[in-house]
Simulated assay, not measured.
Amino acid sequence: MDFVVNKVMDIDRDAENYRKKIEELIGDKQRELEKRINYMNLQWEEEGKSIKKTILLTTLNYAEKKAEEIKKEKEEQISVIEEKFFNNKSKIVDEVFSKIIHSL
């Protein structure tokens, strides 16, 4: 009878040790998974920052090129207007002066 009781106690002790080892293994795996998840989150954040930076730089470059095109276009328009003004300056002055004289 003592033999059977001792065997049952041995089996119970072994089962308890097995349960503890399983819990430790589960805890280890859970910590490992949490580390991997944290690492993946960091990678995701860094990749997101990189994508945002790339988009920002691309958009900024596009905006700068567009601004330069608009500036060039406006400078050309101003140049055309100035050229027309200087070509017609004496005529405009004569007409304004003539209108002033005739209105008196």
Rank of each mutant, 00 (worst) to 15 (best):
S90V: 13
I55D: 02
V80G: 00
N87C: 02
G48Y: 05
E46G: 04
Q30C: 04
A63F: 07
H102T: 07
R31A: 04
I92A: 09
S50T: 09
I101F: 12
T58A: 15
L42K: 05
K53N: 12
T54L: 13
S50K: 05
L25F: 04
K71T: 13
S90R: 11
E76G: 01
A15W: 05
E95F: 10
L56K: 06
K72C: 07
I22Q: 11
L57E: 14
L60P: 01
A15F: 06
S98N: 09
E64A: 06
K71R: 13
S79M: 10
E69A: 10
K99L: 14
N6A: 13
L56Y: 13
E16W: 01
I26M: 11
K71C: 05
L56S: 12
E82Q: 09
Q43T: 08
E76P: 01
K72T: 10
A15D: 11
E47L: 14
E69R: 13
K21L: 06
K21Y: 04
V96R: 02
Y18N: 06
K74F: 05
K74L: 13
E73G: 00
D28R: 15
I55E: 02
V8D: 08
V4S: 10
K20S: 05
N17D: 04
S98L: 10
I92N: 07
S50G: 13
F86Q: 12
N88Q: 06
K21I: 05
K20C: 03
V4H: 03
D14I: 02
E34L: 06
V96Q: 09
M40A: 14
Y39R: 15
N38K: 11
K35H: 06
I55L: 03
K29W: 04
E23A: 14
N41F: 02
K49C: 07
R31Q: 13
V5E: 12
E76Q: 14
I22W: 00
I26N: 05
I92Q: 02
K74A: 03
R13K: 14
K72P: 04
N41E: 08
E46S: 15
I26E: 15
L42P: 00
F97G: 08
Y18A: 04
Q77C: 13
Y39V: 02
A63Y: 05
V5C: 04
K91M: 06
K65Q: 11
T54F: 11
E68N: 09
E47V: 04
E45F: 00
N41Y: 01
I11D: 08
K66P: 00
N88D: 09
H102N: 15
I51V: 14
E83N: 08
S79G: 09
S79P: 01
E83L: 02
R31Y: 01
D10G: 03
W44D: 12
F85S: 08
